[in-house]
């Protein structure tokens, strides 16, 4: 799955590790359960740490671990399953997570703008065709009605500016 950040395909430094077994050298993503169980030990490693969070989890459980996390991966098992949008906003806007927030799974271009607005900044894109269209997808709309943590000006703020 190509990883896209800032509109470009970039190498993925993170190795996915399973619930058990030894950790390889370098950057890893562990499943949420492992992070919760072994948090202190994992934090002590000297390489970037990521966590893969199922979309049924309450991300508030991540709060104590966030300072040690470089990456949180949220899951879209189906693009129609929108739970990770709420998780993303909570991580960014409530818990103040500033590391990489990555969308994994059924990630399609018609949804990336919603994802960006909710705080995602990295995407494991499912269809290669979608990559060149990525920038275009983000530019589809210039008008946004609701405030999210992405800082885009809302219609209300623009109206106030015009007044």
């Amino acid at each position: 799955m190509p990883l896209v950040k800032n509109g470009a395909v970039v190498p993925d430094p993170f190795t996915v590790v399973e619930a058990e077994g030894p950790l390889p050298e370098g950057a890893v993503t562990v499943p949420l359960a492992r992070l919760l169980a072994e948090g202190a030990d994992l934090a002590g490693r000297n390489s970037p740490l990521g966590v893969a969070v199922p979309n049924t989890a309450d991300v508030r459980e991540l709060a104590p671990h966030l300072p040690h996390l470089s990456l949180v991966v949220l899951d879209f098992p189906k693009f129609r399953d929108g739970r990770a949008y709420s998780q993303a906003r909570l991580l960014r806007e409530r818990l103040g997570f500033t590391g990489e927030l990555r969308a994994r799974g059924n990630v399609l271009r018609d949804q990336v703008l919603f994802m960006v607005r909710c705080g995602f900044d990295a995407f494991e894109i499912e269809k290669a065709d979608d990559i060149p269209a990525f920038a275009k997808a983000l530019a589809t709309y210039s008008i946004f009605y609701q405030p999210t943590g992405d800082g885009r000006p809302t219609v209300a703020s623009l109206r106030a500016g015009h007044a």
């Binding site: 399953d81 929108g82 949008y85 919603f114 709309y141 009605y145 609701q146 999210t148």
Partner: peptide, 13 residues
């Protein structure tokens, strides 16, 4: 209407 239009979090309920 304005708040809910293209709401990024609540489009795949």
């Amino acid at each position: 209407r304005q708040w809910s239009t293209n709401h990024p979090e609540f489009t795949f309920l």
